[in-house]
């Protein structure tokens, strides 16, 4: 038991077990034991989970990315624009959207790594800018399949196939495609952070940037890489969001950055950088996901739900700190 409490993963697992135990107690007449409850929970956290994977990459390097929610909105708008209004194919739409995300991330990364702007400030600026850009591109309107025709009346154009693919469930309806997307994103982020040399160097920058620099690690290059990857993941989340909503909403993703940060820190990754990783973020995602789901199946109102979530976030983080 002591051993279990001694590392952040052990503490996060324990938090998760506690949350699930609450679900077992308050199972809403057995609702909690049905697979579709878990399937829906996973679908609901999927977009947040992809953002949390992005956030983990920059937090490990001692940074923070406040622009993830706005970049999600921008990507959702761009993706809808390309595939619905401009009629591009699935592949070019996805690639172009991912490129836009990565470029936005690189700009934040360049400001931080090359020009030494604090991550909080640089990504705050990107957060505001990207939101503005999303509104500019969409003229403030949701980009949907309803377009104004030549005679001024709405014409409904067919939903592109890629939207249907991402929005559906597979394996006898047992898992949503967006959940699979989240799993791929988490897996990719895990491989990057723990199995590659650049990932290792991000930990070193987060752990002690001066020592990293003195060891020949390039701080600008790695920082740009981290934020570019974060932007890339945000674009994937934006595509998933657009496909689920069948439209590109320029307001999509507002305050999502806060949920992503909460998932990362509840898992036990320190905002100071250098420690933690995707395995902890996965636990953080599940803790928040189950918490929300348990409260909603027990018909707890949104007001109470938000207050309880706030309390539980601070409790979980205090628990993480206590063992450290």
């Amino acid at each position: 038991m002591r051993q279990l409490l001694h590392n952040p993963a052990g503490r996060a697992v324990l938090s998760l077990v506690l949350v699930v135990a609450v679900g077992v107690c308050f199972n809403a007449d057995g609702t909690f034991f049905r697979w579709d409850t878990h399937r829906d929970m996973l679908r609901l956290v999927s977009v947040y989970g992809i953002l949390a994977a992005a956030m983990t990459i920059v937090v490990v390097a001692g940074g923070i990315d406040l622009s993830v929610g706005s970049l999600l909105g921008l990507s959702a708008v761009c993706f809808s624009l390309f595939s619905i209004q401009w009629g591009w194919g699935a592949l070019p739409s996805v690639c172009a959207t991912m490129c836009i995300g990565a470029v936005c991330g690189s700009i934040s990364g360049g400001a931080i790594g090359r020009f030494k702007v604090q991550p909080f400030i640089a990504t705050l600026a990107m957060m505001v800018f990207a939101r503005g850009l999303a509104k500019y591109i969409s003229s403030g309107q949701k980009i949907s399949t309803a377009v104004i025709g030549a005679d001024g009346a709405y014409v409904y154009i067919p939903v592109p196939g890629i939207f249907d693919v991402i929005g559906m469930r597979v394996w006898d309806d047992n898992i949503a495609v967006v959940t699979l997307l989240m799993i791929v994103a988490l897996l990719a982020a895990w491989v990057f952070l723990s199995q590659t040399v650049p990932g290792r160097e991000l930990y070193a920058i987060g752990g002690n940037d001066e020592a990293a620099r003195f060891s020949g690690v390039s701080i600008p290059v790695n920082t740009v890489l981290a934020y570019a990857l974060s932007g890339l993941f945000c674009a994937a989340a934006g595509i998933a969001q657009a496909a689920q909503e069948l439209q590109g909403d320029p307001e999509a993703g507002a305050t999502y950055e806060l949920s992503a940060i909460a998932m990362v820190v509840i898992g036990g990754t320190s905002l100071r950088g250098g420690t933690g990783g995707i395995h902890l973020t996965i636990l953080g995602i599940l803790i928040i996901g189950y918490l929300e789901k348990i409260l909603s199946i027990n018909a707890v109102g949104e007001d109470t739900r938000l207050m309880l979530t706030g309390i539980i976030i601070i409790a979980a983080v205090l628990f993480q700190k206590k063992g450290a």
Binding site: R200, A204, N208, A211, G216, T275
Partner: peptide
């Protein structure tokens, strides 16, 4: 403490930083 090591990182990780 400031220039040589990243104290939160493992010994292994600190060691291999110079030899990617």
């Amino acid at each position: 403490q400031i220039e040589g090591l990243a104290p939160v990182l493992s010994c292994r990780h600190n060691f291999s930083l110079t030899i990617p």
